[in-house]
C-alpha cells in the first residue's frame, strides 16, 4: 500500500450545465491533515461526495486508499469514517444504540461492536451519556458522537465535511483537540471548512477553492507568508475611500470589504501615525491569516 491516501487527477463535475468542480487535481498523503477551504458553493462538499463514491465524476480519475472510485468505493468506504455536514444521527436512539446500529452497517458482529464502544465513548467524552437519547444531547456532544460513530470501523481515513460548523467556541476547541489526537494516532484526515482558524490549526496542507478550482495550495503558514507576508491593520469606521488615499503611501496593499479597510503594511507603525487622533476609527493590528489570502486571491471575503 502506497503512502498516498487520496489522489484526484483532472476531476470535473457539472450539475445542470453548471460546473461545480473544474479539472481538479490534488494528492493527500497518508497521515496528513488536508484541508479544502473555500466559501459556500466552492465545490467542497461535491468533492467529498466524489471521494466517497456517492457522486460519479464526469471526467478524471479518483483513487482512495489504493482503490479506484467509484468502481470500488464500497470497499474503500470500509476503511473510511465520515462526519457529514448535517447531523444524521438516529435521534430516537441512545448513544450506544447509534454506535451499535452503525457498526452493523460495516458487517461487524455484536461482540466486535461491543468491544469497540467503550474506547469510543471515552474518546468522545460521552461515557456518562451512553444510555442517553441523542435528542437530549447538546450540539457539541452530538458532533462528538458523530465523530465516534465515524471511528466504529477503525478507519484509516476520515472525511470531515464542515466538522465544527454551528458549534460554540468551546465545543469547537474540544473537537479540534480530538482531531489532533487522531492525527497523532496516524489517521489521515481530509476536511472541508470555511473557518480559517480551523484550517490553520489543523491542516498540514490545504487548498483554497473558488468556483470548483484550486486557487492556492500549500502549507497554511507558507501560503500566508508567500501571499501576504506582513502584518495587517483592520480599520473600521470613517470613509473607506478617504482612508485609502490617506494611508496608501505607507501600505504594500489595501483591500476593502464592506466597511472594513484591510491595510497590509510591513511597517504598520507608519500607518498608525497617519491615523493618530482619529476618534471615529477603530484600528486592529493582527498577524495575517488565511482570510487575507482568500481576500487577496479573489477580491472577496470568505463569508460572501
Amino acid at each position: 500500500m502506497s503512502n498516498i491516501a487520496i489522489d484526484l487527477t483532472g476531476v470535473s463535475k457539472s450539475y445542470d450545465d453548471k460546473v461545480v468542480v473544474d479539472g481538479l487535481s490534488f494528492t493527500v498523503a497518508a497521515g496528513e491533515c488536508f484541508g479544502l477551504l473555500g466559501p459556500n458553493g466552492a465545490g467542497k462538499s461535491t468533492i467529498t461526495r466524489m471521494v466517497l463514491g456517492m457522486a460519479p465524476p464526469d471526467a478524471g480519475k479518483i483513487t482512495v486508499l489504493g482503490m479506484p472510485v467509484p468502481a470500488r468505493a464500497r470497499l474503500a468506504r470500509g476503511r473510511i469514517g465520515v462526519v457529514p455536514q448535517f447531523d444524521n444521527l438516529e435521534h430516537a436512539f441512545t448513544v450506544r444504540e447509534n454506535l451499535l446500529v452503525f457498526g452493523r452497517y460495516f458487517g461487524m458482529s455484536r461482540s466486535e461492536i461491543e468491544a469497540a464502544i467503550p474506547p469510543l465513548l471515552e474518546f468522545a467524552r460521552l461515557e456518562s451519556k451512553a444510555d442517553a437519547r441523542v435528542n437530549t444531547l447538546s450540539g457539541g456532544m452530538k458532533r462528538r458522537l458523530t465523530l465516534a460513530r465515524a471511528l466504529i470501523n477503525d478507519p484509516q481515513l476520515l472525511v470531515l465535511d464542515e466538522p465544527t460548523t454551528g458549534l460554540d467556541p468551546h465545543a469547537r476547541h474540544l473537537i479540534w483537540e480530538r482531531l489532533r489526537l487522531l492525527l497523532a494516532r496516524g489517521k489521515t484526515i481530509i476536511l472541508t471548512t470555511h473557518f480559517m482558524e480551523e484550517a490553520e490549526r489543523l491542516c498540514d496542507r490545504l487548498c483554497v477553492l473558488d468556483g470548483g478550482r484550486i486557487i492556492a495550495e500549500g502549507r497554511p503558514h507558507a501560503l500566508i507568508e508567500e501571499q501576504i507576508g506582513c502584518p495587517v491593520l483592520e480599520i473600521y469606521g470613517g470613509n473607506p475611500r478617504e482612508l485609502r488615499a490617506l494611508i496608501n503611501p505607507y501600505a504594500e496593499r489595501i483591500e476593502m470589504s464592506g466597511e472594513t479597510v484591510f491595510c497590509y503594511a510591513s511597517d504598520p507603525e507608519q500607518v498608525r501615525v497617519q491615523l493618530r487622533g482619529r476618534a471615529d476609527l477603530r484600528v486592529l493590528q493582527r498577524p495575517p491569516n488565511l482570510e487575507d489570502v482568500f481576500l487577496r486571491l479573489t477580491g472577496r471575503d470568505m463569508e460572501n
Binding site: L52, M54, R74, L75, R77, G78, I80, V82, P84, F86, D87, N88, L89, E90, H91, F102, Y105, F106, G107, N153
Partner: peptide, 14 residues
C-alpha cells in the same frame, strides 16, 4: 428529513 439513508450510504452498504 432524518437523513438516515445518507448516513448508511457512507458505510459498506449500497
Amino acid at each position: 428529513s432524518q437523513r438516515s439513508w445518507e448516513a448508511i450510504l457512507c458505510t459498506q452498504l449500497t
